[in-house]
Amino acid sequence: MPLQVDPTYDPLTQLVQFETSRVFEMLMSLQSVVDSFHHPEWTETVRRELGNQFVEELSELYRGFQDGSLISELGIDAPDTNDIPGFIDHVKAMDMSRFAFYMTGRLCPLELIPASISRASLEQLMKKTGNEESSYCSPVSLQWADEADRFRERLVSLWRSYYDKFYVGHVDDFLPCAQKSVVERRDQLAQQGGTALYTDVTGWKELPDAVPPEQPYRELRFIPVFRTNTRRMTYFGYGLVAVVYDCSRTEQYERSIEEDKNRALDIMRALADDTRLSVLKVIAQKPHSNGRKIAERVGLSPSVVSRHLKQLKDAGLIEEHSPDNRNISYRLLIDRINGLPDKVIRYLRD
C-alpha cells in the first residue's frame, strides 16, 4: 500500500501562500534582457523595440548587481505586486535609507542606515553588522551609493521607459503559465505537504536561518514567473521566505531536457572516435555505400566496421536502407548532427 503523507503534520504547510506578481515578472524579464543567454529572443525583441542604447544602459546599470538579481529585492514589499506603475512610483518615493535597505539585501537593520548615505558609510555598516562578505557588499555593488539619487533616478527612468514603451503590451503574457503552475503546486501541497513542495522547488530541505533571529518565519510565499534566467531566486528575512521560481519548468519540460542531454551524449560519444568519423565521412561522401565498400575505403575488416556502424546507428546518426531486401546500405542523417548544438545549448541554458 503506498504511503500517503498527511500535510497537516508538516510545519511548513500552514506557512505556504501562492502569488502571481506582475512586478516580479517584469523585474525578472529585465534580468533576462541583460543576461541574454537564457532568452536571447526576448533580448532581441527589446533591442528592436527600444533600441541598442536602452539595452546598453540597462546592462551598464545591472551588471554590478549580478545582472539585476540583487536589484529585484526591491519587489519584496511592493504595496501591490500587480501594479507596475505603482511599484515604480513607490521606489521613486522611498526615502534614501529605505532604498539602501533593499539595495543592500535587507542585511542591515533599517534603523542603522543613515539618511545620508555613501559607499564608505555602507561598507562600514556592512562590516559592523558582519555582512562584509556578502555579494551586496562588493566594491562594484556599492558604487551606486556615492551618487544614490542619480542612480535611483536612472533606475526608475529605465523601468518606466521599459513598461510604457514596450512591456505594457506583454504584461500578462506570463499569466496562463503562472496560474497553471499555482494550481499544480497547490495540488502538490495538498498531497505532499509544504516541506516536499519547498524542497522540490528550491532543492533545499530546510528554511534559511531567520533574519533577524528574533523574527521567525510566518509566511512561505511561492511566486511563479515565466521569463527568468534562473530556476529560482529566494529572498528571505523579516518573517518571510519568498521563492520566485520559473513556472515554465514543468515535469514534461524537465524530461525533454534530460532526453536532449542523453541524445547529445550518445551523439558525442559516437563522434569521439577517429575511426567512426572516417566511417561517417565515407557515408556522407558516398551515400548508400554498403559495409563492404566502407571497409575497403577505411582499410579495416568488415567485422570491425560493422561494430562502428552499429554505434553510429544506435546514436541515430545513420540509417539502414535495403531496396532489394538483401543488400544493406547506409545513409547519413545530417539533421541529427545539425541539431546537436541546439540540444547542448538548451541543456546549458536550463
Rank of each mutant, 00 (worst) to 15 (best):
P176L: 07
D83R: 05
R263K: 13
P176H: 07
E60F: 07
E73S: 13
V171K: 13
K128Q: 15
T13P: 05
V304K: 09
T8I: 11
R227C: 07
Y102R: 00
K313C: 00
V241C: 14
E25I: 06
S97N: 15
T230W: 13
S21G: 02
L312S: 00
E57R: 15
T43Y: 11
I88H: 09
P212Y: 04
W159N: 01
S69W: 05
Y253K: 10
R150L: 13
E219Y: 01
L70C: 02
D342T: 11
P139F: 09
S121P: 04
R349K: 15
K127Q: 14
T195D: 03
Y217E: 01
F236N: 12
L348M: 15
G51F: 09
M1R: 11
A120F: 10
S69V: 12
R336K: 13
L340M: 07
K281I: 00
P302Y: 11
L50Y: 04
M1K: 12
K205Q: 12
I113E: 05
T8N: 09
S135H: 13
L107H: 02
T81C: 10
Y253W: 15
F236M: 08
Y235H: 06
V91M: 09
M96H: 11
E296P: 01
S36P: 03
D246H: 12
P302G: 11
Q124R: 13
R346G: 06
P212M: 04
G291P: 00
V183Y: 11
Q285D: 13
V279G: 04
S118A: 06
P213T: 02
I223H: 10
V304P: 00
A315D: 04
L61R: 00
E57D: 15
D266G: 09
R336G: 02
V171C: 09
I84P: 03
A78K: 00
D274P: 03
P2R: 14
Q53E: 13
E254F: 05
E41V: 08
V5S: 07
L15A: 09
R349N: 15
I88W: 08
E25S: 14
E73A: 12
F101N: 03
G291S: 13
E49C: 05
E41H: 11
L277K: 13
G193F: 03
G237P: 06
L309F: 02
S301L: 07
T250I: 08
E259T: 07
E49S: 12
S116M: 09
D342F: 14
V171M: 10
G64K: 03
E184S: 15
A284H: 09
Y217K: 03
F18W: 00
T228W: 02
G239E: 01
Y235C: 04
M233C: 10
I257N: 08
F65K: 15
L265R: 12
S306Q: 12
L107K: 06
A242H: 04
N229Y: 02
Y245P: 05
L332D: 04
E25P: 07
P287V: 06
D6V: 12
R48Y: 10
